[in-house]
Nucleic acid binder design. Sequence first.
DNA 1: ATGACATGATAAA
DNA 2: TTATCCTGTCATA
Length: 283
Amino acid sequence: MPEGHTLHRLAGELTAAFAGRRLALASPQGRFEAEAAALDGAVLEEAHAHGKHLFLELGAGRVVHVHLGLYGRFDVHAEVAQVPEPVGQVRLRLAAAGDGRPTAYADLRGATACTLLTAQQRDAVVARLGPDPLRPGTDPAPAWERVRRSRAPVAALLMDQSVLAGVGNVYRAEVLFRHRLDPYRTGASLTARRLDAVWDDLVALMTEGVRTGRIDTVRPEHTPEAMGRAPRVDDHGGEVYVYRRDGRPCLVCGTRVRKAELVQRTLFWCPRCQRPHTTRRVQ
DNA sequence: ATGACATGATAAA
DNA sequence: TTATCCTGTCATA
């Protein structure tokens, strides 16, 4: 679930369900018990996200910092008859009830981080992150300056959160495909124009991801309906070109999609559409 | 029942 | 570069 769009969507859901309300906080699983007890009864000012980091602002300089990691989940139930018993390993439960608004609760599981920070510490976390395509009005220049100075593969740079915040393994693979970029090209080999196009695409794709809660990256002519093919059945449900499609035909050219390990993550790409760059020929 | 794997990141070696 | 953490799901036995 969790690339940047998931966290931004979550921030919106949590704000809508809980902002301005007195919260009951608990850690049924126990790992956040002391903090939850200390925060119990606090009022949520707002939840916001920066890249893959989520922050719950509880006032008086108290900030709960959440990072879902690879398989964390934060399930928000905005309108329920009553708050049920927790199921499984619930690290943090938020609940609000009895104030005239709908009874709501949210359960956090499997997170890599759930800690109580000061406002200053929250700022330090944010300061380590590169530009986030999901923050309106963000200037991508600092990200691209780093990319263009690097001989690392562009596929590695896109996943580096200090370069660009919020892009994960799915958006990385898909945006490279959409721009016909060989994942192994170095950052330094890319033009500013090309990178601006990638940024604009990420803004559009990820904004759509926040809206729908899924990652859809195929153009209208490559949807299942347009191509008369079966829709993807998958845990995250979006329609994509290459992510986890290794061994299957590329939706554009029919070449088998490849996969390889890169920086400890699985990379997917079409070796034909994303052909290695050769020296430009003079006409 | 068991194991591999997952949209992530860190610390140690 | 490897090991480790967090939890759930799916495939295999």
